[in-house]
Structure formats: structure tokens, C-alpha cells
Simulated scan of single mutants.
Amino acid sequence: MEFYHLRTFVAVAEEEHLTRAAERLGASLPAVSAHVRGLEEELGVPLFLRTPKGMRLTGEGRALLAEARLALSSLEAVRTRAGALRQDVTGVARIGLNNEAARMRVPELLAALTRRHPGVEIHLVNSSSPRILDNVRLGRLDLGFVYDNILEPGHEIEAMALEDVDMAVVGPTSWADRVCRADWEELARLPWVWFSERCPFQYLLESSFSCRDLALNKVMVGDNDATLRTLVAAGIGLTLLRKDDALEAEAAGEVCLWRREGLRLGLSLVHRRERADDRVIAAIVSAVTEVWGLPARRR
């Protein structure tokens, strides 16, 4: 039994699909299928049921999954320890971005890493906070920038607070007089362009209105900031944007801003807590600490 057998087994179990597991592992579909068959033959038990919708764990597979994860964790610990014994830091890190690279200070981060650790290769993935958090948990991403109101208490994810991001309620320019004069109750009655599931903007607005016993009038859902901005400019309703995006849209004559009260979201860098001592992770966290002007972290 080889390391890649267990790695493939866990990936297929979590993805429940051979093609998605192959994409996650960066391997070919025939190779992943062969790894699964080889492991089943070596163990002498069926691990998966092949169905039209994908791969489902058998009873034997479910019983062995926890052991496989534990074995992989132990192997990862050995690799991490071996890396700590080396003087150089080399490796690949996949980092999820929930906004433009410049706003995440990525150019400065890459410059700092190039000075300190030229052997670290960075892959950037643009996504949303919920997807980034899920992919960090699943090991598809090594680190990610997320808005921290979607984080849940627990020991699985470690988060480093970076800054508070100002947010702004925006509306169509033709509604400027109504929006500028509106209080919370009047805002709630106006039409709203809403957000995709688990969006941090959604959580922020819901908490802001529900604490005032107000329910929002949601008329449409958009799945990204550009779509939300376009729908507001078209006169569909209000929405919430980062304030820097909102000011840019206002300057372009696309929206008006509600300025009576401020709203904020915390921005954090996250990674799996069990990987805190991984030298590549530690190198990136150290560089982010420098770039964002944060206090040095102690371990």
C-alpha cells in the first residue's frame, strides 16, 4: 500500500466522484480509477459502490475512511517535521482570493516571498469566501482570504485577522433622494437584490436588520459583486457592496450611497490549524504579517 493509494481513497470518498477527485489530485481519471481498484484488491474489501451519480462508500469504506485520514495526517506530520529540519523553504501554495489581488496586497506579498523564500511557488485562485473556506477545509487550497463572519467556532481552522472592510448600501441613482433620507425601516421596505447562499454580505445585512425586528424585501439574487452592481445600476433594487467598490460605482454615475450609518466586515487569512507548522504555510503567514503591518505572531 502506497501513500497515493490512501490519498486517492480519501479524495474519492470526499468528492463522491472520480472526475472531481482526479481534478483535485491533479491526476488522470484512469490513474485515480486504477488506484481505487488496486487498494480494494490489496485490502480484499469493496470500498465504493459505482452508481450513475458517482461513487458511494460501502460499509467497509466508511469504516476505513477515518483510519485512512489518520494515516495521511501522520504522513503529513512526518513531511512537516522533515521540512522543519531543512534550511530552505520550498513548495507550492494555493491561495484563495475573495477580491481583487491588489486589494489583498498580493503584489507586496509576492515581493516579500521572493526576497525571503524564492523556492515558494504561489498559485492564486479567485473565488468567494464560502468556497474558499470549504476548499481550505478539504485541502484543495492551502490558505485563503475570507470575510470572517462566516467562520464557525472550532479547532479545525486558524484565522488571522487582517483588517475591517467598510461596506456600503447602494441603490439606483434615480432613487437617490429616497435612499439618502431613508432610515432602517424605510430601507427594509425597498426592493433588495440579494446574495448567494452563505454570502458574508447576506449575514451582515440580516444581522443588522433582524436586530431591529425588520425583514427585507428581496426581489432578486445575484451571485457576484459585478452582477449586483449591474442590477442596482439597472434600477432593480438596493444591495450591499464594499465601500471602495460603491464609491467607484458612484463616481461612474451608476449608483447612489446610503451614508447614515456604517457597516463593516472583518477580513482574515485562514488555513487548517493542523498545518500551522508547515514551513510553506508559516512562510506565507510571516510574509502576510509583514505586508499587512501586523504584530509578529508567537508560537
Rank of each mutant, 00 (worst) to 15 (best):
M1A: 07
V12E: 01
V12D: 01
R20V: 04
A22D: 08
E23H: 13
G38H: 00
L39H: 02
L43Q: 05
G44Q: 11
V45S: 08
V45L: 13
P46V: 04
P46W: 03
P52C: 09
G54C: 07
L57S: 01
R62V: 00
R69E: 14
S73P: 00
R79I: 00
T80K: 03
R81H: 10
A84M: 10
V89M: 06
G91C: 08
V92D: 07
G96N: 06
N98R: 12
N98I: 08
M104L: 15
E108Q: 15
L109F: 03
A112M: 08
L113H: 09
T114I: 01
L124G: 12
V125T: 08
N126L: 10
P130I: 04
R131M: 06
I132R: 07
F145R: 04
D148V: 03
I150K: 04
A159N: 07
A161H: 14
A161G: 11
D164W: 15
D164K: 15
G171R: 05
A182Q: 04
R189Y: 00
L190I: 04
W192V: 09
F195W: 10
C199P: 01
E206M: 13
S208G: 02
V232Q: 11
L238N: 04
R242D: 15
K243E: 15
E248C: 07
A252T: 00
G253T: 05
E254I: 03
C256H: 03
R260V: 12
L263C: 09
H271T: 02
E274S: 14
I281C: 03
A283N: 05
S286L: 10
A287W: 06
A287I: 08
V288S: 09
T289I: 09
V291Y: 05
V291L: 10
W292S: 02
L294I: 05
P295I: 11
R298F: 11
